[in-house]
Computed example of a mutant assay.
Amino acid sequence: MTASGPGPAAGPDAAPSCARHPDRPTNLACTRCGRPACPDCLRPAPVGAHCVDCVAEAARTTRTARTVGGAPARATTATPVVTITLIAVNVAVFVLTALSAGSAWNNVASPWVRATWLVPADVAAGEWYRLVTAGFLHAGPLHIAFNMIALWVLGRDLELVLGRLRYGLLYGVSLLGASTAVVLLGAPDRPVLGASGAVFGLMGGLVIVLRRLRMSPGPALATIAINVVLTFTIPGLSVLGHLGGLVTGLAVAAALVHGPGRSRPATGLLAVGGIAVVLVVLVALRSLTL
């Protein structure tokens, strides 16, 4: 005669075993699939409790909520982190150049400004970093004040709508587009600096996003029109940089929120990458003739 150890009771009245743990008798069951489940395998649900397998299946098949730009809605927060970071970097660079020059009003005298502002001839000579660094330089307190106010007003909402990654791409590629326009069509030895090109890109992006949301783009268009007029009438402003940033921002935003960029977010990101590649190729070709 063989002795048997302790274990779950057998017989017609015995409790069923957990589907995932056969050694655990249970009187509980998943309210979705009906399989027996022990307390460790159940998760609270709006009605009853679901087993971990059903919870995992629901997570896999549930469609992810996305913003108008295709970013996961959970990736957005009420804090425009990218916009705040961009403003902080611009202000920090301005303070450093002002300290270096010994003057906030004549900070362009800083050797750091002259080493990093955008001069097409210098880009052609291999100093490609100027395409980006020039976008974080400003000539005097008024210049940076106007640009940072515009960046905050435009960026805080665009970032929340597009998501951090797509908003960052809109800003960065617009900056590159503004610099590309200057290199292609500007005077080879004339220096250009400022975040205005990227800010104009945000203006263009705002128009596209408002149209995608079926909201009136009228106020945004009026703002752009006023700024374009000011660009042509106030001496010293970079017409090429402003218009280059605006056109690039329109193209980038359209790639993100229209067509396959909305339904297949990765496609939109690839399209933006393609725009950036085209800009780099244009600069490379222009550099051969400068």
Results as ranks from 00 to 15, higher is better:
R212Y: 03
R262T: 01
V229A: 14
V199F: 05
G261R: 01
G155N: 09
R164T: 13
V183L: 09
V173G: 06
A195I: 13
L175Y: 00
T180P: 06
V182W: 02
R166C: 10
G205P: 10
L160Q: 15
S179N: 05
L256N: 01
L202D: 06
N147K: 03
W152F: 15
L176Q: 03
V199S: 06
A150E: 11
D189I: 02
A225M: 07
L243G: 03
M203T: 05
P188S: 11
A222G: 07
L206T: 13
L202E: 09
M148Y: 07
G163P: 07
L240S: 04
L175A: 14
I224V: 15
V209K: 07
G245A: 11
G205R: 07
G236R: 04
T180C: 12
G268C: 04
T233M: 12
I149Q: 02
T248N: 08
S196H: 07
G172W: 05
S216T: 14
G177H: 04
F232Y: 10
S174E: 10
R211T: 13
G186F: 04
L202F: 02
L185V: 10
G205M: 09
R264Y: 06
L213Q: 15
L269T: 03
P235K: 13
L170D: 04
A271G: 02
G186E: 12
L151N: 08
R212F: 09
I224R: 03
L269C: 00
S238P: 03
P188D: 08
F200D: 02
F232V: 13
S216Y: 08
L158D: 12
R164L: 12
A187H: 11
V209P: 01
P235A: 14
A181D: 10
V228Y: 03
F200V: 04
G194K: 06
S174L: 03
V173M: 04
I149S: 12
L165R: 14
